[in-house]
C-alpha cells in the first residue's frame, strides 16, 4: 500500500485506510449509543447519558475525515516523507497466538505449568537456542514469581 499516483495527485493509501477504519468505528459506536437506556429528564439532570459519548464520536469522525482529506491532498513535502508500507511481520502473528495460548492455558493447567511451557516456547520461536541459559533463567523467574505473588502478596494464582 505505497503512495499511489493518480495523474499528478498522490494518495497516501495507508493513511486513507486508517481514516476509513476510524470513521467506520466511530459510526458503529454511534449506532451502539442508540441501545443505551433512556432516562427521564429529571433523573438525567437534563443531560442524557448518550450526549457526551456521541459528541466525542462525532469529534473522532471529523478528525478522521480531516486525516482522510489530508491523505488525498498531499503536498510535495508530504510525498517525500512517505515510506513504503511494510506488512505486519509474521513473528508478530505467531507471538500473538502464543499470548492467546497463555491466556487459555493459565486457568486450565495452572499458572506455573503455563509459565514453564510459555517462556521457553516464546523464546524458542524468537530464535533462542541456548537451552541451559533458558532453563536457568526461566526456572529462576518461576521461583521469583512464586516468591512475589504467592509468598509475599498472598495472591491465589490459578
Amino acid at each position: 500500500m505505497s503512495p499511489e499516483g493518480v495523474g499528478e495527485r498522490m494518495i497516501d493509501q495507508k493513511s486513507l485506510v486508517e481514516s476509513i477504519v476510524i470513521m467506520v468505528f466511530s459510526a458503529a459506536m454511534y449506532a451502539v449509543t442508540y441501545a443505551f437506556d433512556e432516562v427521564p429528564p429529571i433523573l438525567a439532570l437534563c443531560v442524557q447519558p448518550t450526549v457526551f459519548p456521541r459528541a466525542i464520536l462525532i469529534l473522532m469522525f471529523l478528525l478522521a475525515l480531516l486525516q482522510a482529506v489530508k491523505a488525498v491532498r498531499l503536498s510535495p513535502a508530504d510525498i517525500s516523507k512517505l515510506k513504503p508500507y511494510k506488512p505486519v511481520p509474521g513473528i508478530v502473528y505467531v507471538t500473538s497466538i502464543f499470548l492467546i495460548g497463555f491466556f487459555i492455558l493459565m486457568p486450565i493447567i495452572g499458572t506455573f505449568p503455563t509459565l514453564i511451557v510459555f517462556c521457553p516456547a516464546l523464546a524458542f520461536i524468537w530464535g533462542e537456542r541456548r537451552w541451559l541459559l533458558m532453563a536457568l533463567s526461566f526456572s529462576g523467574f518461576a521461583v521469583f514469581i512464586y516468591a512475589l505473588f504467592v509468598a509475599i502478596l498472598n495472591t491465589p494464582l490459578p
Binding site: 510459555f118 514469581i145 505473588f149
Partner: peptide, 23 residues
C-alpha cells in the same frame, strides 16, 4: 531480548490478574 521479554509479559499478565483475580 529472547529471555527478557517473555518474563516481562508473564509479569505483566500476572500483575493484571492479581488485582481482582480475574482472567
Amino acid at each position: 531480548t529472547t529471555i527478557l521479554w517473555p518474563m516481562v509479559f508473564c509479569l505483566a499478565a500476572l500483575g493484571a490478574y492479581s488485582l481482582q483475580q480475574n482472567m
